[in-house]
Design a protein around this nucleic acid. Structure first.
Lengths: 150, 150
DNA sequence: GTTATTAGTAGGTGCTCACCCACTATAGGG
DNA sequence: CCCTATAGTGGGTGAGCACCTACTAATAAC
């Protein structure tokens, strides 16, 4: 338990402190699990985007997720090596590479999602189902107000 | 705005994703502001601990905040250079250094707190006061369940 | 006294992350 | 056909962070 008695109230009174602290542990716990499979957080994000919205030109993935093009190249390379995604040259515009998720990729994403939910269960343990929904709604609205691409 | 249409629903459905995303922007925005004053996040945490709980032997700060002793030395050094804290050798045990916040330190902390609340207002903009309280309560309980010192 | 333990410090390492530049290849505009 | 812009890629950089080691000074244990 985080000893409330030892964390300065000045910080505990800041929602931003709590958000950053909790977010960080959530992030690192999931990253830890993904690392066990040789994956990073962006890899999961890319798989999710492909599963949810279908095939993308790589540049569209870049724009959707706000990653550097050069970094995206590395992600798709890793995912392709693992067989989670397929990359094919666009016939119409041969500069472009169309990226799509494979069946194995979908299966992998399902497992990653399960991992993520396991982490979530750990972290949200103090809350009952109703409270988790309430939290999720609030977070959704806050997230919606965040700037996406600058 | 974070274009909800572009973030994969698979991720949006994860509270952990939202937490880590929101927490990260909160963290980096505050860090950015503190950097303008030549400070880091830990500096504020140390000031808060001293303001809330009074003077500490440096080793107690280390234990309270879970930082590496060597890093704590650098923090107190920086804070002392700025005049925010005072370090005096403990007469009883001359290995120890007692760290206490100065009046200027308190004033500085108040400013930092104001900065943090400004960031908070930006981020929680979509929520009204009642909802912010609700969110804070939920976060408090979640945070309380987190492991503090391993 | 000798030895082991503890507090603080200086300096360095490895990792992640976001970012940037240079380069190739394709495409499109005039 | 030239010139500019775009897509993807490889490689490198610098900031921030957590961690670790070695060292000094002081205390406690025996």
């Amino acid at each position: 338990m985080t000893s409330e008695s030892t964390t300065p109230p000045t910080l505990l009174d800041l929602s931003t402190y709590l958000l950053s602290r909790i977010g960080k542990t959530a992030r690192s716990r999931l990253a830890e699990r993904l690392a066990g499979r040789g994956l990073r957080l962006w890899d999961m994000a890319v798989l999710a985007a492909l599963a949810d919205f279908g095939p993308h030109a790589q540049r569209d993935l870049v724009r959707r997720l706000g990653v550097d093009p050069s970094d995206m190249a590395k992600v798709t390379e890793r995912l392709a090596a693992a067989g989670w995604v397929e990359r094919v040259r666009d016939a119409a515009d041969r500069r472009r590479v169309s990226v799509s998720i494979t069946e194995t990729g979908r299966a992998a994403l399902a497992e990653l999602d399960a991992e993520a939910r396991a982490v979530q269960d750990e972290i949200l343990a103090p809350l009952d189902v109703r409270e988790r929904h309430a939290l999720h709604d609030l977070l959704r609205r806050v997230h919606h107000g965040l700037p996406g691409a600058p």
